[in-house]
Write a protein that binds this DNA or RNA. Structure first.
Length: 320
DNA sequence: AACTTCGGACAGTAAACAGC
DNA sequence: CTGTTTACTGTCCGAAGTTG
């Protein structure tokens, strides 16, 4: 039996925006709809993100709404292949108490220089001629390949990506030079999670709740019944030099066993970066499994997704 | 029951192409 | 130059498997 798509169900994701049948190009970028949380949380308002949640495009009323994807899932949701959110920490990470590792994943650069055959022109009234030509040109042969332009693709590019685009480069700065390539596509300014991203030296002094923008965000969440005593650490963790360099969360545990000391509200807190957090996941004692819902994000390094979708979800564990 | 894993459909979009 | 088309890449649904 085919279940109803989640976005058509009563209590599921209720899209607030309907999308036109034809893509509108970059307007999607210009006006990213901020959707409410599927979990029922209200949309989190980040500074710099205009609230478009009230915008409704009345187009294609009878069409089923398309599934809406976030532009950049966090590493945890990405690994788990689960729905993420524009907010950081995302609802899922909050739910599982891994908010401090909720950082944007890094997108790899798109391949360039791939040659293509001529396009088939889509049918338009009065465009018969073009379409016919395209049909002839691209008429597939027995093998299904276009007849005239057999090599549809150029061979694999002989060059490697520059190291500054290499997602596996440990010195890679996802929000620096790379983002300049993708401009707002790569990391649109409204989606930059932490606009105040100080060059960190250690120890890290985390400002008190009163003078931190994100604290308002967190307080908002706490008002919703999400008790996240370790929330202040989210700042700390998100200030890592590189998302590639995983650090075991120092404190998250359902039972607060490893929760770091909290200073009284209003006083700065000092956190010490782990010297070299190469506690490999396999050396992690089985106690890790005491928090099963932590394991998903914690046990695996935030390895960026592999090159193809077939590999994106293979966890490091399964790979070994 | 809650959580994890994962195949694959779907969505978004950058880049090549086509036409003016 | 601008619009169209397509391929690439990421997101995440949903089913199956795993764990406690």
């Amino acid at each position: 039996m085919q279940s109803m798509p989640y976005y058509q169900q009563q209590q599921g994701y209720q899209p607030q925006v309907s999308y036109p049948a034809q893509p509108q190009g970059p307007t999607v970028l210009n006006n990213p709809p901020i959707l409410g949380h599927p979990s029922g949380l209200p949309p989190m308002q980040h500074p710099g993100i205009p609230d478009h949640s009230q915008q409704v495009m009345v187009v294609g009323a009878q069409q089923a709404p398309k599934r809406k994807q976030v532009k950049n899932a966090c590493t945890n949701c990405q690994k788990a292949c689960k729905k993420c959110d524009d907010a950081r920490p995302c609802p899922r990470c909050i739910k599982y108490g891994i908010a401090d590792t909720c950082v944007n994943s890094v997108r790899k650069e798109r391949k360039k220089g791939i040659k293509r055959g001529p396009y088939k022109r889509r049918q338009k009234t009065g465009d018969e001629k073009t379409r016919k030509n395209a049909a002839v040109v691209n008429a597939p042969d027995q093998t299904g390949q276009p007849a005239q332009y057999a090599p549809m693709r150029a061979p694999a590019l002989p060059f490697a990506y520059p190291s500054n685009l290499n997602q596996y480069n440990p010195h890679y700065d996802p929000y620096g030079q790379y983002s300049s390539y993708h401009k707002e596509q790569m990391m649109p300014q409204p989606y930059v999670v932490n606009p105040v991203y100080p060059p960190i030296g250690y120890p890290v002094i985390v400002p008190s709740a009163e003078n931190n923008n994100q604290q308002g965000h967190q307080q908002q969440q706490q008002q919703q019944g999400h008790q996240q005593p370790q929330y202040q650490h989210s700042n700390y963790m998100m200030h890592q030099a590189s998302p590639q360099q995983t650090h075991r969360p120092l404190m998250i545990n359902q039972h607060n066993e490893h929760v770091m000391h909290q200073s009284p509200a209003g006083s700065p807190q000092i956190y010490y970066q782990q010297a070299q957090s190469h506690q490999h996941q396999h050396s992690q004692p089985s106690s890790q499994r005491n928090s099963p819902h932590l394991s998903e994000a914690v046990k695996s390094e935030p390895v960026p997704s592999a090159s193809t979708s077939t590999n994106t979800t293979s966890s490091p564990d399964s790979g070994n």
